[in-house]
Structure formats: C-alpha cells, structure tokens
Simulated scan of single mutants.
Amino acid sequence: MRGRTAMGKDMNTPISRRNFTRLALGAAAGCAVGPALAATEEDALTSYVPDSQDQPRLLRRISGLRMRNWEDYFDNLNKDAILCDTNDRVLHYWGADGFYRVFPTSVPLTDQLTRRGRTEITLKRPEPEWRPTQNMLKRNPDLPKYVGPGPENPLGIRALNLSWPAYRIHGTNDIRKIGRQSSNGCIGLFNEHIVVVYERAQVGTPVLLI
C-alpha cells in the first residue's frame, strides 16, 4: 500500500485516527465479525491516515496488513487465538465466536530481543505497573526503577502477561512506537486496541509469535 493515497470509501475523504478508532471499536462492540466486515476493516487499516496526534504516517511504518487463516497456525479456537507477526508488525486476533481483527503493533528493536514461538496468556493486568529488567537497565541506566499505573506507564492502560518471563502484549501511551521496531521484546498496541484484545482474551489463550 506504500505510495498510494490513503482515502476513505468515497475515495475523497482520508480516514483519520479518530475515525479509524471509532470504526475499530464499533466493530469490536458487535459480537461476531463476518468475512465482509473483516474485509472492510482491512481496507480501513490499509487506508488509515494518522492525524496530527500520530505523525509521521503509520502507513510508512507497517510492512503488511494481510489477512490470514487461523487454521494455518492453531488447532482450534476454544480459547480464542492470537498471532503476532513481527515482520508485518501486526497482531491477528481470532475469536471462537467468529470475531477476527488485525491490529498494528510495535515490535522488538532487534532480533536479539525478539522471542518467537508458542506461548499463552498467564495473567490479565487491568492497571499495569512497570519495572525495567536488569538487561534493560544495562542498556539504559537512566530508566526509572518503577512506574506505577497511569499516563506515564510504558505498558499503557492494559497488559497481558505471557508464559515467557518479562514478555507481554500491552498498550502504549507513546503512539509513535506503533508500526516501529521500538520495544524491548514486548508487543505493543494502541491503548484503544489493547482494550479490545484484553476484554476478549482469557488466561490460557494461545499466542504464537512469528
């Protein structure tokens, strides 16, 4: 989609971040998302033009927003399923009720910080607090030792712990990170999007990072 002018359905009106968020949350409010609606949402994702809150353009930071089939990665959707694609910089969420969404994400800064493979959600944290790991402090000694819940928290407003220590799927209060290689190992989403994922996911939901 690079190089293409990003427009809304009438091909004249750009889709702002506010309208994109309204579309995303509106779809999430309904129960199941059928194929036609999923395709519409993919169009919205690929034609999304960030507004002044979110410059430079998110489109330039995302390599792919392809739709995928859950059967290629999971045996069942008994507890829903999450696929984090670190190359495309997106998170795919499939629900047992037919829900399907693709969310843009931040991904780890380097291959050395990236962990791939199968894991699962082990804890849901509605008001996450944050402490840097020892390795993070070695890389950046100026980091604060602790940040409580609130607007300055690097984990945003929700966090999902994975079975791998110190790895999470979480929100972010720095929207410049989304679509970039910008994390220390975690997968970050817009706060609006982590709320959708958080509300649907459960302890035991399988997660695959590729």
Rank of each mutant, 00 (worst) to 15 (best):
L209F: 15
D80S: 03
L113G: 00
T86Y: 11
V33Y: 00
Q53C: 11
R4H: 08
R158M: 05
E41R: 09
R131T: 14
R89W: 04
L25A: 05
Q134N: 06
S106Y: 04
E71L: 12
S16Y: 01
R57D: 15
T5E: 10
V49F: 10
N153Y: 07
E129N: 09
K124Y: 07
K9D: 06
W164I: 11
V90R: 06
W130C: 09
N12S: 11
D72P: 01
P14G: 09
E41N: 06
Y198R: 03
R118E: 14
W164V: 11
D88Y: 04
W130G: 07
N135M: 11
M1N: 02
R89E: 05
P154S: 07
D51G: 13
M1R: 00
I169K: 07
K9V: 10
Y146S: 12
A29R: 13
G98F: 02
D80L: 00
G64I: 10
N184Y: 14
M67C: 02
R115P: 00
E129H: 09
R66P: 00
Y198C: 09
A24H: 00
F190A: 06
A44K: 01
N161S: 15
R176W: 13
L160V: 04
G26L: 03
I15T: 05
R18M: 09
G26P: 02
R4A: 08
A81K: 03
A201N: 04
E127V: 10
P35Y: 08
G26V: 03
D75E: 14
R68L: 12
R139K: 15
L65G: 15
D51M: 12
L59I: 15
R139P: 02
W70N: 08
P165T: 13
G26C: 01
P141Y: 07
L189D: 06
R66A: 12
P144L: 09
R61K: 14
D72Y: 02
G30Y: 10
R61Y: 14
G98A: 02
G64T: 11
R57G: 15
I15N: 01
N173P: 01
P50S: 09
N87D: 12
V33G: 03
Y100N: 05
A29T: 08
P206E: 08
D10V: 03
L189M: 14
G64C: 12
R61F: 15
D80W: 00
L58K: 07
R17E: 14
M7L: 14
M67G: 08
C31I: 13
T13L: 06
A28G: 12
R60Y: 13
P151N: 11
V203P: 03
L45W: 10
I121V: 14
V90I: 11
R168A: 12
I82T: 01
A38I: 07
P128V: 09
Q53M: 13
K145R: 15
K9R: 10
P154F: 06
S182G: 11
L155P: 07
L160F: 03
A159V: 03
T114Q: 02
G171E: 02
E71M: 12
L58T: 13
G30F: 09
Q134W: 00
E199S: 12
F103A: 10
R57L: 15
S52G: 06
R180I: 01
W164Y: 04
Y48I: 04
N19P: 00
R66K: 12
D111S: 13
L162K: 00
T119Q: 05
V197T: 05
G30P: 01
H92S: 03
G185C: 06
L45F: 09
N191W: 01
I121F: 03
L137P: 06
L208S: 07
L91F: 03
R200P: 09
